[in-house]
């Protein structure tokens, strides 16, 4: 197996080895052993760090594969030099790792991850995280219904609410649903663009902090509804967001 990928997760194994989870462009998520990758002079040391975008040559095995060669395309060093960026990047990689099965190829998800990381390098991780959540759900077949009411199927226009069960709800159907979340027109438009636009165009979006906040609450509920366990990186992200910034990183 040969191709590009991004390291989602790394676990130490034995004395000096690592088990690396990589999201690849052609094979989907794979797990492979990097032998000796914790030794200072090993050539696999740097390319097997979390968040690294690299080119990997992997020998297939029965259980775990083995990384034979690797070179860095982009180390995303800036995620390691900034606490908030690191927290967001951790959240995005954990989200992808949690929702995907091994060796189910998806070029779209790989491109989405690259697009989200690219937005993150420009300090726009709040938008990157929301775009990643919306688009990931869509690619996995959990796209929220945005054009028609979840209850009656009629075309929706305004005064909308969002149900974590799967999409927008019109004012007439709203009383039949529990746990509805507010959905302003600005946020609704943002969601539609995030589902319809090419991922490479997300950078030209400049949503208001209010819309991003509203979408964050919506997607958090939407994802919780579909995931049986809490994401570990979320608590750290909340801790970092609540910390005062002092410009030290």
């Amino acid at each position: 197996m040969r191709g590009e990928g991004i390291v989602l997760r790394v676990r130490n194994m034995g004395e000096a080895d690592r088990v690396v989870t990589i999201y690849t462009a052609h094979y989907g998520k794979i797990r492979a052993v990097a032998r000796g990758a914790r030794r200072v002079r090993n050539r696999l040391l740097s390319p097997t760090q979390v968040f690294t975008h690299g080119r990997y040559l992997v020998f297939p095995g029965k259980g775990l594969h083995t990384i034979s060669q690797a070179e860095i395309v982009n180390s995303y060093q800036e995620f390691r030099d900034d606490l908030e960026k690191m927290a967001y990047a951790s959240y995005i990689t954990e989200l992808l790792d949690s929702f995907t099965e091994e060796e189910l190829p998806s070029q779209e998800l790989f491109m989405l991850l690259i697009a989200a990381f690219s937005l993150g390098t420009h300090g726009r991780f709040a938008l990157a995280a929301r775009a990643f959540e919306v688009r990931l759900m869509q690619e996995l077949g959990y796209a929220p219904q945005l054009h028609h009411c979840l209850g009656c199927g009629s075309a929706v226009q305004e005064n909308l609410r969002f149900s974590p069960e799967g999409g927008v709800v019109c004012p007439r159907c709203a009383p039949r649903y529990r746990e509805l979340l507010p959905l302003s027109n600005g946020t609704w438009e943002l969601m539609k663009r995030l589902t319809e636009w090419d991922v490479s165009r997300f950078g030209i979006l400049h949503p208001s902090p209010v819309a991003l906040g509203e979408l964050e609450r919506i997607m958090r509920n939407y994802i919780d509804f579909r995931l049986d366990y809490p994401l570990k990186s979320l608590e750290f992200l909340e801790t970092v967001k609540a910390m005062p910034k002092d410009g030290s990183d």
Binding site: Q49, V50, F51, R80, D81, D82, M86, P244, S248, D249
Partner: peptide
Amino acid sequence: PNVEGEATAMYLARVIKP
């Protein structure tokens, strides 16, 4: 000098510097 170590260092810098 890995992701976990850097996260720890940055966190400590933020709480100790003030």
